[in-house]
Design a protein around this nucleic acid. Structure first.
Lengths: 205, 205, 205, 205
DNA sequence: AATGAATGAGTGTTCATTCAT
DNA sequence: AATGAATGAACACTCATTCAT
């Protein structure tokens, strides 16, 4: 107990810190260069450790992107938690929340990484599975919101509900693409048309 | 039968045919393996010509994907042309057309290629520029439709119009992602919620 | 038909020549540095071609050593053929042949390579299988010689025959090791004791 | 006798125990995976100590195999001692001892390690020297047996004696190879032909 | 026009070894 | 004495690209 932490042999907190160090660095590199474009050399330099050492924390480059996905998944859950914790009518909450939703999906950096992962999913089964799993969770959470007390569409059929959720998700996912295809696009421009659409999706047709 | 040899010196029609042969083969390979996953060897085999020979038509692998984008751009224009050529109220036409729009964007194969190109745009300036150019054209065409005689929203502000167009484009782009994230999703499920949304976007708020 | 050979596209003779070029170079490197000690870089430099190009002829480094084994196997057969083609009593022929047999097995270079392959067999199933296959062939040929007309032990039991063959093979194999363990050992010193032993093995006990 | 500097606290008995711990573990790993195939990580795990700590006892991986050889050398001497201690005619003793000799040399595990060391000798001077030293000792011991009172060939020339010894050693060394090349080979099959050969080698020609 | 032999820079990964603790 | 975090040079292998024919 030299310092505040007992540094005696094999500190799991250090290991976790190093893992995150790698994940953050890798995410950064993947954003900039793409999964295939970013080499372990660059990742290791960004992470501030040798390439070889990374393999003490991850079995392969593939394992790194998989860990990134899982980390992102957990972040996503906290967003849903916000909606669930907030009181009031769901439509109002989501209209207000749409602003930060647009923010998040139009962030170039974040979007680039998500695109990379989606593209990788097309040729990497494990990545595809993880992303789908994440999406399934997200849809389940959203469904819970839409069938809850505070929802105005809680009585629609399952199928219609699924349609509403998927169109909603498509929009936000699609915003990620808009940023790439139309970088000058402003957030408030989107919101002008997005809010009426959200209203449509959260009210009976 | 002359067969393969009209041998003597450059036939520009043949050259164009060969170029297309390569583009079709490459698009196919990119779809299946991704831009980085597909090698020139595989592309050349699919195209039925030697790898070396491809370099007589394209300067690099990069030039191939650029050419694919340009070719796709032209295809896209024909879709808009359909809407312009069809008589009647725009809202009705687009509601009817939404079905094939969903079809097109939920086609896995086509989607995979588009994703590849978008991901590549994040790290390849030229690709980004071409895709943006293509998108700019598409938005211009759409704007023409929405400000035309037959439109019900022809009097909205430019900014609101831009919002409407971009949300609409975001949805269709987003459908491509849905297919990857939720492969079981059915077209009619989407249409259930998509049509009301399109109505919202094509009518005054 | 510009020269003596039609050099038009894809000459299988050239390919075969290149393959042998690689095999010879690799055998040389393996001898000097061992299978694991010799890198593809060194092999390629020895073979006079780029490392990458070697992979047009062999799937892997492992495939190279496998091909070397098979090539050696064929050489071995020709040795047996000599004995079969030669007229006279087998005992006399083999006593005379023992000299070149000692030569071959006491050649340091050749021995080093064989040792490498045997050591590799301990950890590489495929290599082990090929060597065993080769040995099985060799024993079969030897058995044919020993049960032939010209043999003086053609009436012994199968088991005893197997014993004789294996002790004989053990001796020659063992000579390879002697060279490593006792480099000053002279061929004629060995022959002094080897000939009586061969006589023992080729005559009824 | 400690080559390393006796540092603070050093218990030389413990150090020796640790050294042997490493040697036993390493020998085991080399047998199973080969010298190059066995990593320091695996050896350290088998030895029950950290990889880094091994370097307190051995300068390098190479030093480990060298120490193994020296340890084996000492074991070998005890075998010769058995022959020397046993009363009776040498021929009879060795015929009887041949059985356990075959046993020892046809033991796969032991053989694999010996092969590893021999193969390593081809590229590692120090290993070669140690093995040759060991072999020289062994030949000297054997020579003493063969020129002793109880021998039936005590009057042959030095050269012939050398030939007899080397052929004998070649056979037993060669048996190690037989096991790799012909795993189904049985001990008694070998003995059928081996005993007459030994008789030949221990009697005047 | 067309080939495919040939290149070489680059890849992810491994592993003996060092060193702060 | 003992650890294991950390390194860095090496490895087998891939692939877009060039070029003699």
């Amino acid at each position: 107990m030299t310092e505040k932490t007992t540094k005696r042999h094999t500190d799991p907190a250090l290991a976790e810190a190093r893992r995150n160090q790698v994940l953050t660095a890798a995410a950064d590199c993947f954003r900039r260069k793409g999964y295939h474009g970013a080499g372990m050399a660059e990742i290791s330099k960004t992470a501030g450790m040798s390439a070889g050492h990374i393999y003490n924390y991850f079995d392969s480059k593939e394992a790194i992107i998989e860990a990134i996905i899982q980390r992102d998944m957990e972040e996503m859950f906290s967003v849903f938690q916000q909606f669930e914790d907030q009181p009031g009518e769901l439509l109002e909450i989501m209209l207000e929340g749409s602003e930060q939703g647009v923010d998040r999906h139009m962030d170039r950096e974040q979007g680039a990484l998500e695109l990379e992962m989606l593209a990788e999913a097309a040729r990497n089964q494990k990545v595809a599975f993880l992303l789908q799993q994440s999406d399934t969770h997200a849809r389940a959470r959203m469904r819970r919101l839409l069938t809850g007390e505070r929802s105005l569409v809680k009585d629609t059929t399952d199928k219609e509900l699924d349609g509403r959720i998927n169109v909603l998700f498509a929009i936000f996912g699609g915003l990620t693409l808009r940023r790439t295809l139309y970088p000058e696009l402003q957030k408030d421009t989107i919101l002008l048309a997005l809010k009426p659409v959200i209203r449509t999706l959260l009210l009976p047709f």
